[in-house]
Amino acid sequence: MPAEWEPHAATWIAWPHYEGDWPGKFEPIPWVYAEIVRHLVAGENVHILVQSAVLERRARRVLKDAMVSLRRVKFHHWPTDRVWTRDSAAIFVKHQTRGNSPLALMGWRFTGWAKYSNYKRDAQLPQRMAEYLQLALIRPTINARGRERQVVLEGGSIDVNGRGTLMTTEECLLSKVQERNPGMTRAQLEKLFAHYLGAHNVIWLGRGIAGDDTHGHVDDIARFVNPTMVVAASERDPADINYKPLRDNLRRLKKAKDQNGRRLRVLELPMPAPVIFQGRRLPASYANFYICNSAVLLPTFNDPNDRVALNVLTELFPARKIVPI
């Protein structure tokens, strides 16, 4: 599995439509997505999934009003339940084959983070992508209790350095809460990662951050930024609920080694102050950035640490523009 910073032919996103993902705050979201697309098309093609021709027209209008060139944009009328394609869409992998393409799609089973019932449209995305791109679709399975069972995995639950090392969390993949693959062991998961993703070295972190309804996705807490370095979310306030789990993750990372047995370099990324909406803490984290060909899209929160996070990533990605979103 390639690292996120490696060259992309395109990025796949779904145009926002499900207001429940931004309760009370949906109105500006299409404009935020227009800004995202504007920076993506500067360096790569963008495939946008829309519910219908009507929504495509609305999306085109927003993009044009935001002065976004549509030359590198391709719309697909593929209805989705939610917009989180990092989790639900196929994962691109390189593989050795006698076919025409060195690429294949990994179609893990998607079940709405083992929490939500509206996921069946999203679960169809790997098949749709494979048919459109005419690439092989690999569906990882495991023999459980005498029968083959498709393995559940979301893209945000793992992060890789593209050289054979993968990070994930025990909370997401081994917990009985929001259990993705009942009965599956750590050893079985590691074997799957090695076989299907070429990741023979797995780093297990502990827990994710408060408010994360995925129950522990690693893309909120630790990310590879090159083959030998990880940035890790760090909370400085001992009274904060995230303090202990994030300190534990830092301890694990500082002891971790890469696929060649070498210690990783670990750089701390601050956390923003708690973001509360309607009495609920939201999973705000600077680690949930996206690396595209020409930029790094960084979530920001109108917080003093926004500047700190921007400076950290500016030093780590000197050839890319760091864009606050």
Rank of each mutant, 00 (worst) to 15 (best):
F75L: 01
T228N: 12
M271V: 07
T168K: 02
R207V: 09
L63M: 05
L310H: 08
L174R: 01
A232N: 08
L133C: 12
N226F: 02
V266C: 07
V152L: 07
A42R: 15
G107M: 02
W108C: 00
R58D: 01
V46C: 07
R281I: 04
L267R: 11
V32I: 13
D258Y: 01
E27Y: 07
A14N: 02
L282T: 01
R262I: 14
G155R: 01
A59C: 06
K120V: 09
R61I: 10
A53S: 11
V275M: 07
V68Q: 00
R252Q: 08
P274I: 07
T169K: 02
V54F: 10
P238H: 06
G198T: 04
R180D: 07
A233K: 12
L264E: 01
R280F: 09
V32S: 11
D306L: 08
V308W: 05
L298D: 03
D258W: 03
I36C: 01
L197P: 00
H200I: 05
P16A: 07
W12H: 06
T185F: 09
T80E: 05
T214H: 05
L103M: 11
D212E: 15
N249Y: 10
Y243N: 10
N45G: 10
R121M: 10
G198K: 00
R247Y: 05
T168Y: 01
G206S: 15
C292T: 13
V323L: 05
G155Y: 00
R58A: 00
F224W: 05
P238Y: 07
L63N: 02
W78E: 03
I291W: 09
V46S: 00
G216E: 00
F75E: 03
Q150R: 11
N249M: 09
H8C: 07
E56Y: 03
V225D: 02
P182T: 04
